[in-house]
């Protein structure tokens, strides 16, 4: 990877809750346009880190910038540059698809025309234009997840954070979801994604693997497999986790 333009830089990121250390000296950089996989078991500290990067949570210490802005002092400036799709489903279920797009587009200060264009483009891409006036609660989970993602990138953010976006979704929909991620990356949106499906790790440009609040490994999937002499990412992960446990 060449041009070395970083959109996320974290140096010795520490987050403590009382005496519990959720993030222990995380240091990593994410390049522009990259798909960065943030892996780890449940409770390894992924969600805490992603919340800090999104400006939802203040870190205890460390030097962290997102989209060139400081996470301690410029959280609101960061929020203009990012999209976020949380673990929990976060569209308004009692609104229609169209209304959700209008609502979030409005919050990001997009014009009416721009919102209309984007909505049409996104729904066309998902092939669900006929559903635009359906209440979100009535849609199947797979479609809702793809919609959440579309809403998270409708304002063309620099970075999109996805916190376990494919939890509970069938394999076909997961594959389709990753196609959406690739398309977003091709448009220059940096994708920061957490997951605990190790097959998905293979789709990332680089992955970091967290164990007990620390980053134990950070490289491309291929290099990691070579280093740990593993057939796939699943084995890499198991070897790391066993070492720690």
């Amino acid at each position: 990877m060449g041009n070395n333009e970083y959109v996320i830089e974290a140096e010795n990121l520490v987050k403590k809750f009382g005496s519990f250390v959720a993030n222990d000296n995380l240091t990593f950089k994410v390049e522009k346009g990259e798909i960065f996989g943030f892996l780890g078991a449940n409770g390894a500290g992924k969600t805490t880190a992603i919340r800090i990067l999104c400006g939802l949570l203040l870190p205890t210490s460390g030097k962290i910038t997102v989209a060139g802005q400081n996470v301690y002092t410029q959280t609101e400036a960061i929020k203009k540059q990012i999209g976020y799709m949380s673990q929990r489903f976060s569209l308004y279920e009692d609104l229609t698809i169209n209304e959700n797009f209008r609502f979030y587009g409005g919050i990001y200060g997009m014009s009416r025309i721009k919102i209309k264009e984007k909505t049409a483009e996104m729904l066309d891409r998902l092939g669900i234009e006929s559903l635009k006036n359906s209440i979100v609660a009535s849609l199947p989970l797979g479609i809702r997840q793809k919609l959440s993602f579309s809403v998270a990138i409708m304002h063309s953010p620099q970075i999109v954070f996805l916190d376990e976006p494919t939890g509970g979704v069938d394999p076909i929909t997961r594959r389709q979801f990753w196609e959406l991620i690739y398309e977003a990356a091709a448009k220059g949106i940096t994708v920061f994604v957490t997951t605990h499906y190790m097959d998905e790790a293979e789709y990332c440009n680089r992955v970091s693997i967290m164990v007990d609040g620390r980053i134990e490994a950070l490289d491309t999937p291929r290099n990691l497999k070579d280093k740990f002499q593993a057939k796939n990412m699943d084995e890499v992960f198991l070897k790391l986790a066993r070492k720690a446990g």
Partner: peptide, 11 residues
């Protein structure tokens, strides 16, 4: 519902 988290990451 958790929608507030989505609101909180917006500007």
């Amino acid at each position: 519902l958790g929608t507030i988290e989505q609101i909180n990451v917006t500007p």
